[in-house]
Amino acid sequence: MRNNNVFSRLARGQLLSLTQEKIVFLLAVLLFAVFSFSLTGFASVDNLLGLLYNVSVLGVLGLAMALVVIGRGIDLSLIATMAISVAWSLTLIRDGVSIEAALLYGMLMALGIGIINGWLIAYAEIPALFCTLAMGTLVYGFGRIALIPVDVVYMPADPGWFGALGQGELFGIPAPVIVFVLLSVVATLVLRYTRFGRYTYYMGDNYQAARITGVPTRPMLVMQYGVTALIGFAAGLVTAASVDSMNTRIVNSTMIYDVILVVVLGGIGLSGGKGGVRNVIVGTLLIGILLNGMTIMNIEYTVQNFIKGAILLAALIFDSLINPRDEQTAQQGDI
C-alpha cells in the first residue's frame, strides 16, 4: 500500500498522470509500431481499413454499452437484442414483408426491449446487471420460440440499400467504418452538449444526488436503455449486411464480454460517471490491432484468446498500480 502510494505519486509527477485510457492508448501505439515493423502488409492502408472494418461492429456495440455504463448501468442483453431484433427483421423480409417495414418492426422491437429494460431498472429497481442478464436470455428464448424458426437467418437475395450498409464503400472507406465514425461523432456531441448527455454523467457520478437535484432519473434510465438498444440494432444491421446473415447463436458466445472489455479497457469505469467516446475508440483500436496482427501471424484462435486475455490483464494491473483504490473511499458494492 505504502509502496503503491509512493509509486503512484512518482508516476503522477513524472508521467503526467497516466490514466487507464492513456495506458491502453500507449499500448495500442506500441503494438501498432511493433506490428508495422515486423509484419509485412500490416501498415498498408488497405489492411488498416480492413482492421477498422473488422472491429467497427464491436466499436458500435461499445458505444451503446458506454452510454449505459457512464450512467452507472450495464446492458448484458445488448447482443441478444441485436441478434434477435435483426434476425426477426430478416425473417420478416424472407416472408415477404418489405425491407423498410421489416426493419421498422425490428427497430421497434429493439426499442421495446430497451424500454422494458429501463423501466425494470428505473421503476422496479432491479439492479441493471441482473435485469439485463435476465432480459438477454428472455429475449433470446422468446425470439427462438416465437419469431425465428432457424438459428441462422440469411439475407434476402436482393437487399438493396440495406446490403450497402455492410458491403458498400464511400471514398474507399467501408460502410461499417463510416457508421462507426458517424455514431461516434453523434455520441460525442450528445454526451457533451445535450442535457441528456450531461444528466447521464450526473447519474453515473451520484445517482441519489442527481435525483435530489431534480434530474428526472427514472425517465432518463428508460431513455438510456432505449437508445442503447437502438444502437445495438444498428450494429446488428451492419453485421447482417456485412455477412449476409444473422447468426442467433452469438447470443450464447462470449461476445458480450468482448464489448464490456472494450468499454472498460478504454477507461470507462463500471462505477459510472467517467469516460466518453474517446475511451471506446481507444479500447476498440487496441482490440482491433491485436486481433488483426495475430490473424496475420496465423496464431491459433485459442492462443489468440489467451494473449488477448493476458494483455487485458496486464492493462488492468498496470492501471491498478498507477491508480490504486483506497480502502476509505472505495464505494460499497462497487464490484
Binding site: G41, G50, L51, N54, N247, S253, T295, Y301
Partner: peptide, 24 residues
C-alpha cells in the same frame, strides 16, 4: 495453407479472418 483459423461457427468472425487473409 497460409492460414488456419477458427471462426467458432460465427460468420462475423469468418468474415474478419478471411478479410485479413485476403489482404495479406
Amino acid at each position: 495453407v497460409v492460414s488456419s483459423q477458427a471462426a467458432n461457427w460465427d460468420p462475423s468472425q469468418a468474415r474478419a479472418i478471411t478479410d485479413t487473409v485476403l489482404k495479406q
